[in-house]
Design a protein around this nucleic acid. Structure first.
Lengths: 113, 113
DNA sequence: TCTGTATATGCATTGACAGGAATATTCGAC
DNA sequence: GTCGAATATTCCTGTCAATGCATATACAGA
C-alpha cells in the first residue's frame, strides 16, 4: 500500500500510469506523449516496476510497459474499508448509533440523579 | 489526486489515517497510539489537513481530528477507471477485441497478396 | 492572573529523490 | 562484426521534506 502511494506521489509517474491505462506503450511513445526526456522516463518506469505497478515485455529492442492490476486493485479494496465515510447505508447506521447514544446518555443522567 | 497520494506516501501519515478510520481522535491519543512525538503528529496532521484528508473540531484545548470522505471517495472513484484491469467482464471484452484483431490481420494479409 | 494541559510552530540537520547531461547496454539489420 | 535505434545507467547537483529539540500559543481551572 505504502509502496503504491509512494510510486504514485510523483506527477510524472502518475501521468505515466494514466497514459498506460489506455494500453501498453514502449518507452519512446511515453516520452513523446508526456514530453519527457528518455532517461527520466526509464527511471520512472523503474520505480513503477519496483512498486509492482507495471510489467515489461521485451519486443526486439523495444520494451513494452503495461499496467499491472494487483496494486491498483489492492488499493481499490483498501478504500473499501473506508466506504463507510461516504456510503449512505453506513450513514444510516451512524444515525442509529447516535440515537442509541442519546438514550444511553439519558440513562446515565437518570442514574446520577 | 496527486495531493492525496503525496499525503499518504508517508508511513506515519498513513498510520494516522488508518487509525482515524476508527473514528475521530485528539492529537494526544494519536501520539500515544502510534508512539510518535507530539510535534510530529501535529505536523503530519497539518499536511493531512492541507490535503483535505482530515478536518478539525476544537473541543476546549483539545482538537479532534477526523477523516474527510471526499478525497478517499475520489480516489476510490479514480480507481474505477482502472477496473478493466482486473474485472472479468472487461477481460471478456478483451478477448472479443483480440478476436476481431485476428480477423483484421488476416484481411490485411489477403489484401497485400 | 497564575498554572498546567493540549497543541502548534520555528529552526537546524539530514537523507531521499528528481532532473540534466553524458555514457553504457541491448539487439536487429545489413 | 558494424551500425543505428531503443532503452538503461551513472554521476552530479539542487530541492524538498521528515525528524528532533526547543519554544510558543490556546485555553480551562483555581
Amino acid at each position: 500500500m505504502l509502496a503504491t502511494f509512494t510510486a504514485l506521489a510523483e506527477p510524472n509517474r502518475l501521468r505515466i500510469v494514466e497514459l498506460l491505462r489506455q494500453g501498453p506503450r514502449p518507452v519512446n511513445e511515453i516520452k513523446d506523449a508526456l514530453r519527457l526526456q528518455q532517461p527520466q522516463v526509464s527511471k520512472h518506469l523503474r520505480v513503477l516496476k519496483e512498486a509492482g505497478l507495471v510489467d515489461v515485455q521485451p519486443r526486439a529492442q523495444q520494451r513494452l510497459y503495461e499496467l499491472r492490476a494487483e496494486p491498483l486493485q489492492a488499493l481499490h479494496q483498501w478504500l473499501e474499508g473506508y466506504r463507510q465515510l461516504w456510503d449512505d447505508r453506513f450513514n444510516e447506521m451512524d444515525e442509529l448509533l447516535a440515537e442509541l447514544n442519546e438514550k444511553e446518555k439519558n440513562n446515565v443522567r437518570k442514574k446520577r440523579h
